[in-house]
Structure formats: structure tokens, C-alpha cells
């Protein structure tokens, strides 16, 4: 009887290898990729114009295609919020709740496994690879808290860990699994060569934006401004785009840095009031928050500063509310020394 495993596919090299190791042992594998909203995949590459020359690809889909497996992409945006807001095991260096995140994903994968009659779960985790979530002492925590227990196999480091059910039952041969550990990527790269994988993705920080310092600071700023931990999909998308400037606690400006971002922000003009320079080429700016009428001029002066009219006496802009009503403004661009450092998020 052919045993079936469901693999957590991040799009990185490790899960790619883990699946191939299982396939070598005759296991049937399908992949799951969870979309939290913070995934590095896709978005910003699609938004920023300068990246558009490179062919974009979704690495999880790419991995699945290399492996010849089905991939199920699952939207967990809503449920995942609780993981981000209240991580039982806390955050990593930034707002990344890695251990809670792993537990959550394995738990979701377990539900899928049971609903689809699969036998066990595999991940590309390696002992000691990540300081918080992939340590020898946290690995059993994932198993316990997710409820998956010994139906979770990590083919790349299994020989450093106690035998799991698939090993004990002889579904897989423990001797043919690996004993990788630590932060070195060399064993993985050697194995990739052996399997003939090229051109795989090697994300530097981690699999999501929550490991990014700048991004985490912007998210924290948002929570602070709102007085509570809360976000919507649009918020977390917009944190990836443009420069963010908060001239007053009540409101924030999101100013495009190049054409691609401008085009992207344009899609939000029905949800956020916006400013656009008309006398000179310049950015598009969304205004997020509650602001008073007299603050629009200040906002316009900041936006003008980022336009080609930054040295002009006056710059004209159009203010547009969410209903599409517009009005014209004529302002002096804010001189650089008046743009306070602490405004820049």
C-alpha cells in the first residue's frame, strides 16, 4: 500500500528537498502552501516596476512543478491574525511569531491530512537552522501543541530526532533519511546538486515579511496609531509599498516611490483619500487615518517635496476624497530640514 504524505511547501530549497527525499522512498506526496498575507512570494515583485523585467514566479508553485506534485494553496489570512496578535511563545527578532506559526501550520495541515486520508506530514525543517522555531527543544513542542505527535517527519534531520511513526512502521527507511543540523546551507546545496535542482529560491531572511525589521516597525506603528493590534489585508499589503510618513499621530501618508507603486496605489483611491501633484511629475499619496481639513495642506507640502517640483516656489496638487470629489491645492514644498526624522516610519 502506497503511503501518502502532505508536505508544507514554503517555496524554499528545504521543503523541495524534503519532498524529493520522500519520493525517492516511494511515498506519494501532495503539497500545501499557506498564505498568511505576509508571505514574501509575489506581491512586491509585482508592485515595483523595476522588478517587472525579471520573470516573476511563485516559488511554491515552481517547487511543486519541479517535483511533479499537486499543490494546494490555502488562505489562512483571517485565522492567522490570532497567531500574530497573541503568540504564546512570543516573537522572534522582529514581529515574527515563528514557533506559534509553525504549530498553527502543522495543525492546519493535520486537519487537511485527516480530511483527505493522508498518513503523515513532512516539513523541510532542519535542527538548529533557525534560532527560535527550528531548535532541537522546540521541535517536540510543535508536535505536541499541534496534536500531530509522531506523524510529523522531517526528512532532512530525522536521524537527529527520535524515530517517528512512518519510520517505526517501516513506511520509510530511516537509514535513507538525513541528519542535517545547524545553519550551514552546504549539505542542502550538495543534495540539491545530487537531485539536479537548479535555480531554486534562497530567501535570505525567512519565509515572510514579519522577519523584516522595517516591515515590523511599520506594523508596530500601525498598531500604536490605532491603539490596538488590528490589521486588514489592505493594511498589510500597503505596508509593503511606498514610503510611510506620519506627520501626526492621527494620520499617515503612503507615498509611491516609483511608477509601479504609483499604479498600485491608484487602485486604493476609493478606500483612501489621495493627493497627486499636477503641475509637476510626482508621486501618488494615500492618506490613512483621521485627519483634519487643515492637515491636508501639510500633507500636500510633504508630497510636493517628493515631486520633481521640490525646488519650485509652488507646486499644484489635486486632493481627492474616497467619493471621487476633487479640489486643487497650491503649496510650497516642505524644505528638507522641516521633514522631521521621527515622522518617517
Amino acid at each position: 500500500m502506497q503511503r501518502k504524505a502532505v508536505a508544507l511547501i514554503s517555496g524554499g530549497l528545504d521543503s523541495l528537498l524534503a519532498v524529493r527525499v520522500m519520493q525517492e522512498q516511494g511515498i506519494y506526496v501532495e503539497g500545501i502552501n499557506f498564505f498568511t498575507g505576509f508571505c514574501v512570494e509575489g506581491h512586491t515583485h509585482a508592485i515595483r516596476k523595476k522588478d517587472q523585467k525579471k520573470p516573476k514566479r511563485n516559488n511554491a508553485l515552481w517547487c511543486a512543478e519541479q517535483l511533479g506534485i499537486k499543490l494546494h494553496i490555502i488562505d489562512i489570512v483571517e485565522e492567522y491574525k490570532d497567531v500574530v496578535f497573541n503568540p504564546k511563545y512570543g516573537y522572534g527578532a522582529n514581529l515574527n511569531p515563528c514557533l506559534d506559526c509553525k504549530i498553527f501550520m502543522v495543525k492546519k495541515a493535520k486537519e487537511w491530512m485527516e480530511a483527505h486520508d493522508f498518513d503523515f506530514i513532512i516539513t523541510g525543517e532542519v535542527v538548529g537552522q533557525r534560532p527560535k522555531s527550528q531548535r532541537k527543544d522546540t521541535m517536540p513542542v510543535v508536535q505536541r501543541d499541534s496534536g500531530i505527535d509522531d506523524r510529523l517527519l522531517r526528512p532532512l534531520c530525522a536521524r537527529n530526532l527520535p524515530p517517528t511513526l512512518p519510520e517505526r512502521e517501516g513506511w520509510v527507511d530511516r537509514e535513507k533519511l538525513y541528519d542535517f543540523s545547524g545553519r550551514s546551507r552546504k549539505p542542502q546545496m550538495a543534495l540539491a546538486r545530487q537531485f539536479g535542482f537548479e535555480d531554486y529560491a534562497q530567501p535570505a531572511g525567512g519565509c515572510c515579511f514579519l522577519t523584516d525589521e522595517q516591515y515590523s516597525l511599520k506594523l508596530q506603528d500601525l498598531w500604536q496609531a490605532r491603539g490596538e493590534k488590528r490589521y486588514e489585508m489592505d493594511d498589510i499589503m500597503l505596508l509593503k509599498v511606498g514610503r510611510h510618513i506620519r506627520p501626526a499621530p492621527e494620520y499617515k501618508l503612503i507615498i509611491s516611490r516609483e511608477e509601479g507603486e504609483g499604479k498600485f496605489l491608484q487602485g486604493y483611491r476609493k478606500q483612501y483619500p489621495s493627493l497627486k501633484t499636477t503641475s509637476h511629475p510626482g508621486p501618488l499619496c494615500l492618506i490613512d487615518g483621521d485627519f483634519a481639513e487643515e492637515q491636508i495642506e501639510q500633507a500636500a507640502r510633504i508630497v510636493a517635496r517628493y515631486s520633481q517640483g521640490k525646488n519650485a516656489d509652488k507646486v499644484e496638487l489635486e486632493y481627492r476624497d474616497t467619493e471621487g470629489n476633487t479640489r486643487q491645492l497650491k503649496v510650497t514644498p516642505l524644505p528638507p530640514h522641516e521633514l522631521k526624522k521621527e515622522w518617517v516610519v
Partner: peptide
């Protein structure tokens, strides 16, 4: 919708 949301919707 930004990728991968359109893919998820189609799926």
C-alpha cells in the same frame, strides 16, 4: 487581488 490570491480564488 495580488498573487497568490487570484490563484486561490481560481483553485
Amino acid at each position: 487581488l495580488l498573487c497568490p490570491m487570484p490563484v486561490i480564488r481560481v483553485q
